[in-house]
Amino acid sequence: DESNKPILLPNESQSFERSVQLLDQIPSYDTHKIAVLYVGEGQSNSELAILSNEHGSYRYTEFLTGLGRLIELKDCQPDKVYLGGLDVCGEDGQFTYCWHDDIMQAVFHIATLMPTKDVDKHRCDKKRHLGNDFVSIVYNDSGEDFKLGTIKGQFNFVHVIVTPLDYECNLVSLQCRKDMEGLVDTSVAKIVSDRNLPFVARQMALHANMASQVHHSRSNPTDIYPSKWIARLRHIKRLRQRICEEAAYSNPSLPLVHPPSHSKAPAQTPAEPTPGYEVGQRKRLISSVEDFTE
């Protein structure tokens, strides 16, 4: 099969070098950035008060330690540790928490760990991170309901609301924008112990962030949302095809390698009803078989 044979790379090609550099910018793992907010007593309706908090309760602090690993920003190499735009020179604080497994990295933009500057009256330095995160974990210690939209931002799609209760338990629920209701189930609340709260809140936030990324990708319907490693695979396959075309153009005697095509017509299947918005969006999480067989 010609399409699977190794090909020689061009010795000097600026377009090839640019493509390789672009490939280096696509990590081999999925990345997520999640905002974390603490809401104190009497702050449920005040964005400024929430963003001005420099610490929270003892249970909130224990919750943070379970979310991930504490890292010092100045020691991080952005090409190895995903920071979601946090500055490593102290502009966004000294520490944050991050978490990773074999296929993804997540960083938490924690408002109480970011510096509260006197010259920044409206807390814009914090909002440029927190307001651009799709998902926020809100530790609501106010005793009042927290409403979506209290923290203004164009991309605040989903809130994971943590409400501490007695007996070391917590109520965990989801809020989302109306255009996200087909992807996020907000109907079920959970009672979770303090011990298990970081794991549950983190998983709910990661799932909500993946759904938000799919939702946000609708602005470019021709580019369905893939995982990062599938995006790398697609980029490599496009690069291979372009090299083959350039080689055939410079030397017409060489065969032009095309991806294999299936001449056999697909079997006719009964027509199915058109899937609704929710089903269609969830299918976009699934990769096409052509990603692996071309």
Rank of each mutant, 00 (worst) to 15 (best):
A267W: 07
N4W: 10
Y249K: 06
L22P: 07
R59A: 00
K5W: 14
S46A: 05
E12Q: 09
C244N: 09
G90F: 06
D141C: 01
V88F: 14
D24S: 04
S217N: 06
Q154E: 15
H215I: 13
V279T: 13
E2Q: 07
I243L: 11
R69K: 13
I34A: 01
Q203D: 05
G280I: 08
R59K: 01
F292I: 15
C124G: 14
K190C: 15
P259K: 11
Q281E: 13
I34G: 01
R284W: 06
P260R: 08
N4H: 12
C76K: 09
Y60T: 00
V135R: 01
A265V: 12
R123Q: 13
T186D: 09
K127F: 08
P270N: 09
E12P: 06
D185L: 02
S250L: 10
P270L: 10
G182T: 08
R242C: 15
T96D: 04
Y58C: 06
T186E: 06
N4I: 12
Y249N: 08
H109Q: 04
R128T: 09
E41M: 07
S263I: 08
L206M: 05
S19G: 11
R128D: 10
D223G: 05
T65H: 13
L37D: 00
D141W: 00
E144F: 03
C244K: 05
T112Y: 01
G90E: 12
C244H: 08
T112N: 02
E181F: 05
Y139F: 03
R234N: 14
S187L: 03
Y29A: 04
A189S: 10
T112M: 01
V107L: 11
L37I: 09
F155P: 12
L22A: 15
C169L: 03
R69G: 11
H122P: 08
A201G: 01
P266L: 09
I26Y: 06
K127Q: 10
S261L: 08
S253N: 15
L23K: 08
R123I: 11
I286G: 13
L22G: 07
D79H: 06
A247H: 13
R232D: 13
T31L: 11
I110P: 04
P270K: 07
Y139G: 00
Y29L: 13
R282A: 12
T96F: 04
E272V: 12
E144S: 09
I50V: 05
F199A: 02
E12V: 08
K127I: 14
P226A: 06
L67G: 00
L9I: 13
D145Y: 05
S57N: 03
W99D: 05
T293Y: 04
S173R: 10
S44A: 13
S19L: 12
K228W: 09
S19D: 15
W229P: 06
L86Y: 13
E144H: 04
H215W: 10
E54G: 04
T150S: 05
F146Y: 12
R238W: 11
V214H: 15
D79Q: 06
S227V: 13
D194Q: 01
E2N: 07
Q175R: 06
S19R: 08
K127H: 08
E294W: 04
L165A: 02
V188K: 06
G84N: 15
Y167N: 04
D24W: 03
N140M: 00
H215F: 11
G182Y: 10
S187Q: 11
Y58Q: 06
E72P: 09
L183P: 02
F134C: 02
P221N: 05
L197D: 00
R218C: 10
V192S: 01
W229H: 12
N4L: 05
Q268D: 12
A111M: 06
E272A: 12
C176L: 03
F292D: 14
A35T: 07
K117E: 10
N11C: 08
D133M: 09
D179A: 07
H122S: 14
G42V: 01
S44M: 14
P78T: 11
V162H: 00
L171Y: 04
N170S: 12
L256V: 11
K190P: 15
K237F: 08
M204H: 03
A248F: 08
I161P: 00
V119L: 08
M204Q: 03
Q175P: 00
C98L: 12
K33W: 04
M204E: 03
E245Y: 09
C89G: 14
R69Q: 14
K190G: 14
R240V: 12
E54V: 04
N209S: 13
C76S: 08
S28V: 11
D75I: 05
S15N: 08
P270D: 08
R59I: 00
N53P: 02
H262T: 15
K228T: 05
F157G: 04
I26E: 11
W229V: 05
D1R: 07
R282V: 10
G68R: 05
F157C: 14
A265M: 08
H129S: 06
I103E: 13
N140D: 02
C98Y: 15
Y249H: 06
L67V: 01
N132K: 14
I224C: 09
L51P: 02
E41Q: 08
L239Q: 09
R202V: 06
T274S: 10
G42H: 12
C124F: 15
V214F: 09
D185A: 03
S187F: 03
K178T: 13
N209C: 08
E41L: 08
C76I: 11
H262N: 14
F155R: 14
Q77F: 08
S3V: 11
R18Y: 10
Y249V: 12
H258V: 13
G93W: 07
L70K: 10
I224L: 05
V192R: 01
S44V: 11
R128I: 09
V20K: 12
V158D: 00
I71G: 13
T222F: 05
L86E: 14
H129W: 12
C169V: 04
R202H: 02
M210N: 01
E12D: 09
V184C: 10
L285H: 11
H55P: 02
P78G: 11
R195C: 11
D141A: 02
G143R: 07
C176M: 03
P259C: 15
I161N: 04
H122K: 11
H258F: 11
A267N: 08
N220G: 05
H216D: 04
D125N: 15
S57Y: 01
N156Y: 03
R282T: 12
V289R: 15
P115Y: 03
R282Y: 07
G85N: 12
P221D: 13
L9M: 15
D118T: 14
V81G: 11
K264N: 13
L64P: 00
Y277C: 11
S28P: 09
V107K: 10
R240L: 04
A265T: 12
Y97A: 11
H159F: 15
F155G: 15
K237T: 14
S250M: 12
N196S: 05
N251T: 12
T163I: 03
T222V: 07
P198E: 00
I151C: 08
Q25D: 14
N196A: 07
A231T: 13
S3T: 10
G280W: 05
V214M: 10
S3P: 12
S212N: 01
H129M: 12
Q94E: 10
P10G: 10
L113C: 04
R284G: 13
R195S: 08
Q21M: 11
A205E: 00
E294V: 06
K33Q: 13
S142N: 01
